[in-house]
Design a protein around this nucleic acid. Structure first.
Lengths: 261, 261
DNA sequence: GCATATTTGTCGTCTAGGTGACAATGCCTG
DNA sequence: CAGGCATTGTCACCTAGACGACAAATATGC
């Protein structure tokens, strides 16, 4: 495996230095949607929250939970990346979310009571803080500031899902890919690229197979391969060390503004 | 206009008696997603919240806010129904949400600061409580219980949007319509149907044109018309007073379980 | 009660993109 | 280092559903 998104030796130092607040992807701020919950808390809050957490270490592809599970914890990514997805009755996998360092996930299912709606697997070697439902709600109850932040994060997710929904309903595959790449570039801009970016280039610093992209945008793997080849031929993106670099961000952004080509 | 979803003379009495908690739509509980925020609050909380609210009366099709607006209020539906949608660059309208009596909306955009992401129009004559951002956040800060409920509602919306997303990515139009109808039947089960339902029948007590349905499920109006005609021919649904009755709910549910036919 | 606008229903026609089938390449593991 | 698995690339084929264009039926405002 390449060194893309390699978990930091000490995940904590990583969490504390992440800050994407200045990246804009035109309209929605991805950094906002993928807000770093943990680093938004004060030292004290962080301590109060993590003191009742368990650490989990996951290897790539390890399953954290599956739909139907009773597990009722909230999780925070300490290092690595978690893929959250749903499988339809026809067997098709749809990726709903990637959770990166510092992000909290599983929160939306706490208030449902019974069971998980989605699947969560480690997209690479990943470290997790696991917090029991009860501990987490207690924490929120006793830390109003943190509760507000939780509301902010859920709000961001609502907005983000809304955007994705609109895109899925009205854009063609090329546009959906363009949007995805720009968003992921914004998320991963915090981690410096293994092989350096040329001026003006954006690095999509996440390990994504064509199948992953297909599952993220609701398309078939073949179409993704073809469309990506097309974007490459036009010089909009290029492959570097098995991940994508956006050569001309404005090129892709124009694609988005124009809608379907 | 027919008497579908006619706002009650006194919206309050309506709000207080609504309770969909027993309706299940198989998997997700629509009633949960469309939780009645207002009636979930205690008498005291309700008073504290509404004392700083303004009442707005909207005629059918009145615009409450549009994308880009600076308006930063949260709203609660006192009577009627609000359509929340986004328009893509190509002019295609995607409906993200319908807010019914008692529901709160606009909340997800409070934490964004700058501007509205979506459009909101009255789907019929509608009464609204409008609460300023500041008042609302203060309210949440001083009423932890209510803050928790807000989190619960946002969580439900996240789950619901996730479901819709998965459906959009992997189901065909017929399945998406079936799912939509069942969900809306569950929501509107609280209001009794103007013309009575036969035993075992469900009434989709919402005013929806084929175009609306198309915008909700990401399809073209023509396809919706055809598919609905098909479902009618097969006896799964029937038209009563210009709204839809689900004659055989289990028929539609089977459709969902099987996935694409 | 009339005129206009909106909604429904039904055609062809056309295409984006799904599907299946392979070969080629690369990668990880024993 | 070899075999196996995952990923990419590229076909040819096919179909769900978009789109445009109507006519008919309804609703709504004046």
């Amino acid at each position: 495996m390449s060194d893309i998104s390699r978990p930091a030796a000490d995940p904590f130092s990583d969490i504390m230095t992440h800050d994407f607040s200045s990246i804009d992807d035109g309209g929605d701020t991805w950094s906002d949607a993928h807000a770093n919950f943990l680093s938004s808390l004060s030292q004290e809050e962080t301590q109060d929250l993590l003191k009742c957490s368990r650490r989990l270490d996951l290897k790539s592809r390890d399953l954290l939970f599956r739909a139907g599970d009773r597990s009722n914890d909230v999780y925070i990514v300490a290092g690595g990346c978690i893929r959250l997805f749903q499988v339809s009755t026809t067997g098709k996998e749809t990726i709903l979310w990637f959770s990166f360092v510092g992000e909290i996930f599983g929160m939306a299912e706490l208030w449902r009571g019974n069971s998980r709606q989605i699947h969560a697997v480690a997209n690479e070697a990943t470290q997790i803080y696991s917090i029991r439902r009860r501990d987490f709600t207690d924490f929120l109850g006793t830390h109003p500031e943190a509760a507000m932040k939780a509301i902010g994060i859920l709000s961001a997710r609502v907005r983000s899902l809304g955007h994705i929904l609109v895109g899925l309903a009205s854009d063609n595959v090329e546009t959906r890919i363009a949007r995805l790449l720009i968003r992921f570039a914004a998320v991963s801009s915090g981690m410096r690229c293994c092989s350096g970016t040329t001026e003006g280039e954006l690095c999509v610093n996440v390990r994504l197979t064509h199948q992953d992209i297909a599952n993220l945008i609701g398309a078939s793997r073949q179409t993704v391969t073809t469309t990506l080849a097309h974007l490459r031929k036009r010089g909009a993106v290029r492959m570097v060390n098995h991940h994508i670099h956006i050569v001309r961000p404005d090129h892709l952004r124009r694609l988005l503004e124009l809608g379907a080509a």
